[in-house]
Design a binder for these strands. Structure first.
Length: 595
RNA sequence: GGACCGGUAGCUCAGCUGGAUAGAGCACAAACCUUCUAAGUUUGGGGUCAUUGGUUCGAAUCCAAUCCGGUUCACCA
């Protein structure tokens, strides 16, 4: 349990004892004490003064003296300023904390709690390669899965591949028209890029045909509808649904190229899945649930045969769940898939990592599942994240303003290579070790950049300015880790064989500050899981690294004033490195031993 | 038009269950490597927290209105 929470408990208990008022620990507001005041943690008293009819100062004095007297093992002093009760934690507490945790490689992680959670993420279309937006999705999904694991959950990662539909047929048609039998192998192109190029070709040709028809005097809408290439694409979708052999073969071929491309990108960025669903297998799911819904009176049928649900009483609209031709729509498939996943995994919570433009969709999905009384309903959680935008606005594939995932990863790794070479600190590394280091740093910079921002918020990426390697960045934290490891190596101690601190000693401010930061780690991990927000971890780790670097600059570790101090500082360093490693790992970022 | 999200330093972002003088990083100006990794540290300048009103001991945070930006409300997925 964290000290901050203990203070809440102790304060609530004290108020109960002294004034007979029952409080929950979380009714007590506890903050870190501002640096300009004496103390470590501050209890904010204003909330209680009305109820207790006491002046803030009197209440603070009474509470402070009571709490300190009751818990001498924890507190050594208090002071009251205005309505703030500042408490000082004794050095003995921090020393004991460091002493008991510095060898704990799982510090911060919770014990297995038996809860099953599903995380669905990535979910690409097979008509074009991954871009920066997908990277945010993949990093978020992977990270939230790791954060949940660290909090004791059993996590299953899933992916739904959107491998069918009109957009896939567009690439297929364009390949038939312009491909001349080319393949990724024959053109030495990565499969997903190869197929994506035909998607672009489709759009170019389509635009050309529309212009041509308009020049012949047709109206916009008519031209768009009657363009031969669009008609051919629509026919192809019908042929696909009918299972026409040559269309199926082309479809399988093109998808296999895309999958090969995706696989190599996934491998590089560290995305993996316990189970992959393909929409071509799941798009018919949910049909039986439409019948169920009709029987239960949750859905209703219109005169033309289409089936709807009326959500106006929930403040939403009417929503179609089955077309008049009897085919199902997106939401119906999703309901069906939710049920299928529920049957397969029986998870308590099912997290969907999907962009915020689908907020409405997931609201509706959950609502419909609840109205149908499905077991999956209450576990549905939409982890909604904002778009990654360019300074000029949204990325648009049609306007060529998309930041390609593979290109960006490559660029980041190249920058890492260049900077590492300039600094020249790892000249003795083998070629393989160097490549691994460049990957670690380049991808670390990229992942940290995308994860350090609150997922809910949209964010801006400027391709003109490369992602930084200084300050609030992945490499800064990786560097701090490598630096600590270097110190530990030079001090000639193995990780588990540091001495015992026996004497009570006085902590310097930065030693204490570092201890306080370290002690917060478990509650930060828990908070990140509760909020589904990896940025909490990113921000925390950054502040920890910054605190360590100040501590490092101020105090010598290997040549400390005496053996006691040396032992303490080595233990502090060791635990800091451990927390950085665990924290970065849940973000999906590796930390090097040297850089 | 309805619903939802956002607007904090030149830029990118924290802070939002109301609490002490609103914080980081980048950029800018300067200082610090014969001793543990300078991808570092320290210092400085930089703010009408979109606007207006309200709630109260106290508002960047809550409420209302307004302005600006975004998303969504498809027999697309």
């Amino acid at each position: 349990m964290s000290v901050a929470f203990k203070i809440k408990e102790v304060t609530a208990a004290a108020i109960h004892q002294l004034y007979g008022i029952d409080l929950q620990p979380n009714d007590v507001l506890v903050n870190a004490t501002k640096p300009e005041f004496e103390g470590d943690y501050t209890v904010v008293l204003f909330a209680f003064i009305k109820q207790l009819k006491k002046s803030p100062d009197a209440l603070g004095q009474e509470l402070g003296s009571y709490i300190v007297a009751q818990h001498p093992e924890l507190f050594t002093a208090y002071n009251v300023i205005k309505g703030f009760l500042n408490l000082t934690i004794g050095d003995a507490y921090w020393l004991s904390f460091i002493q008991t945790q510095f060898t704990n490689e799982h510090f911060g992680e919770a014990a297995f709690n038996g809860t099953k959670v599903m995380v669905e993420y990535s979910s690409p279309n097979t008509n074009k390669p991954l871009h920066l937006g997908h990277l945010r999705n993949n990093f978020l999904g992977r990270s939230i899965a790791e954060i949940l694991k660290a909090n004791g959950n059993e996590v299953a990662k899933t992916c739904i591949v959107n491998d069918r539909g009109i957009h896939i047929c567009k690439s297929m048609i364009a390949w038939q028209m312009f491909g001349n039998g080319a393949t990724p192998e024959s053109t030495h192109t990565k499969g997903d890029h190869f197929v994506g190029d035909y998607y672009v070709k489709f759009n170019d040709e389509y635009k050309r045909q529309v212009e041509e028809l308009k020049a012949q005097g047709k109206l916009d809408e008519e031209a768009e509808k009657s363009a031969p290439i669009m008609k051919a694409t629509q026919q192809m979708l019908l042929d696909w649904e009918a299972g026409k052999p040559e269309v199926m073969e082309l479809w399988r071929n093109m998808n296999s190229w895309v999958y090969a491309g995706f696989d190599s990108t996934y491998k590089r960025i560290g995305s993996d899945f316990d189970k992959t669903y393909y929409e071509s297998n799941t798009y018919l799911l949910g049909k039986d649930l439409v019948e169920t819904g009709l029987e239960k009176g949750v859905f209703y049928q219109k005169a033309d045969g289409s089936v709807w649900i009326d959500l106006t009483s929930d403040g939403l609209d009417e929503k179609l769940v089955r077309r008049k031709d009897g085919t199902s729509v997106y939401i119906t498939q999703d309901i069906g898939l939710a049920e299928q996943k529920q049957k397969e995994f029986n998870a308590k919570q099912s997290i969907y990592v999907v962009g915020d433009e689908q907020n409405y969709h997931f609201k509706v999905l959950k609502l419909i599942c609840q109205k149908l009384g499905l077991p999956s309903a209450d576990g549905i959680y939409h982890l909604s994240y904002g778009m990654v935008e360019l300074p000029t606005g949204k990325m648009k594939s049609r306007e060529g303003t998309v930041v390609d995932a593979d290109d960006l990863v490559e660029e980041m790794v190249n920058i890492a290579r260049q900077k590492t070479e300039e600094l020249g600190k790892v000249k003795d590394f083998t070629a393989e070790e160097l490549e691994e280091l460049y990957d670690t740093i380049g991808l670390g910079a990229l992942k940290f950049f995308l994860l350090r921002v609150d997922p809910k918020k949209k964010m801006v990426f400027n391709p003109e300015e490369s992602i930084d390697f200084h300050g609030f960045t992945g490499p800064f934290i990786q560097y701090t880790h490598a630096r600590i490891k270097s110190i530990l190596r030079k001090s000639g101690v193995g990780s588990l064989e540091l001495g015992v601190i026996t004497e009570a000693q006085t902590l310097f401010p930065l030693e204490k500050e570092l201890s306080i930061h370290l002690e917060m780690f478990p509650s930060v991990l828990q908070d990140a899981a509760d909020e589904h927000d990896p940025s909490k971890v990113a921000i925390y780790i950054f502040n920890l690294a910054k605190t360590f670097n100040s501590f490092y600059t101020e105090h010598s570790i290997g040549n400390a004033e005496n053996e006691e101090k040396k032992t303490l500082r080595l233990q502090l360093s060791q635990l800091t490195a451990q927390v950085i490693k665990t924290g970065m790992n849940v973000l999906g970022i590796r930390v090097p031993e040297r850089m």
